[in-house]
């Protein structure tokens, strides 16, 4: 089986796993190998991977208590060295990134981070990703195998679930990690578990909003539009006005809604890269030269503190009709 053709996927998140499987299928259609999922979780999750289109599952069972997902690294490294797949695509969550980086170092390669697209140049794999905070697109060619790559949510489209998958589930056993961290505590953060990627309409306040209490105004606008609230990074990190899950951009969520409305957002590349595929882009900004204003369908030049209340009234009036 050591034919360097198979493509493995690994993600701690089942939903992301389905997308990674779709991405892996793109690769195996060139390499001619199988798509295999490495699953850390209940047997049902292993079966789910088969339904999602994996042809084979390497199943580690549930995470033993006191262990971390990251502890999978030595196990993964040993299996990769043993079974020699063409590559491993790993879901770009925080833990996924840790796994990818450490695995790459063990295998003596560089992980391709946050891949947006795979391409083939004859027999050579190319990976496209953003650098300079979205200011540039770079295409990389891995010079050594196995290919270790991470991709985030929304890059590949998961296929339909298969009713009667045929694949096999092969158990995998743990390789003891050389060191271990003691888990002292886990607190789930009061996350509204918003799924921005699924929202049809998104209202996004930026630093143009002067005070945290003024977010109420933006919230009201979001309600009038039946939109989700997002934000730019400084509002979530640094100011901490909104949870981190809500910021859009290269290091945050990538969205493709029907409507994106930026309020007091300057439109730096790091942000716009996360929303540039929105169908209709609207900007409200007092500076008509702000980058987002020149990259939008409708740019309203004005003070948000005047325009937003007027817009809420206008929207309500239309609804009332």
């Amino acid at each position: 089986m050591a034919d360097d053709k198979d493509v493995w996927v690994f993600s701690e998140k089942p939903a992301l796993q389905a997308e990674l499987i779709a991405g892996a299928q793109q690769l195996t259609s060139h390499t001619g190998g199988q798509v295999m999922a490495v699953v850390l979780g209940a047997r049902s999750q292993a079966e789910q991977a088969l339904e999602q289109g994996a042809q084979r599952v390497l199943w580690l069972g549930e995470l033993p208590s006191g262990r971390l997902v990251e502890d999978i690294v030595p196990t993964l490294a040993a299996s990769v060295q043993d079974k020699r797949p063409f590559g491993v695509i790993i879901g770009a969550t925080i833990r996924g990134r840790a796994v990818a980086g450490r695995l790459a170092a063990r295998l003596g390669v560089a992980a391709l981070a946050d891949v947006l697209e795979f391409q083939w140049d004859d027999s050579a794999l190319l990976a496209r990703h953003m650098v300079f905070g979205g200011g540039a697109v770079r295409i990389d060619r891995p010079l050594a195998g196995p290919v270790i790559a991470t991709t985030g949510q929304g890059i590949f489209e998961a296929g339909a679930l298969q009713a009667r998958p045929k694949g096999e589930i092969e158990p995998l056993s743990w390789v003891e990690p050389p060191w271990q961290a003691a888990v002292i505590e886990r607190r789930s953060r009061a996350v509204s578990s918003v799924n921005l990627s699924a929202a049809k309409r998104v209202v996004c306040p930026g630093r143009g909003v002067a005070r945290q209490e003024d977010l109420g105004l933006i919230e009201e606008l979001a309600q009038a539009l039946s939109a989700e609230m997002a934000c730019t990074r400084p509002l979530a990190e640094g100011l901490g006005w909104l949870p981190r899950e809500r910021y859009i951009g290269i290091s945050g969520a990538m969205i493709k809604p029907d409507l994106y409305l930026g309020v007091g957002v300057s439109g730096q590349a790091q942000h716009t890269i996360g929303m540039s595929e929105s169908r209709v882009v609207v900007a409200i900004n007092k500076d008509r030269a702000a980058p987002l204003m020149t990259q939008s369908d409708y740019a309203v030049e004005g003070d948000l503190y005047q325009v937003v209340p007027a817009l809420i009234r206008a929207l309500k009036a239309r609804k009332a009709k």
Binding site: G108, A136, R138, I139, D140, R141
Partner: peptide
Amino acid sequence: RVEAVSLR
């Protein structure tokens, strides 16, 4: 381990 083919 990786070669940048293009930057645009």
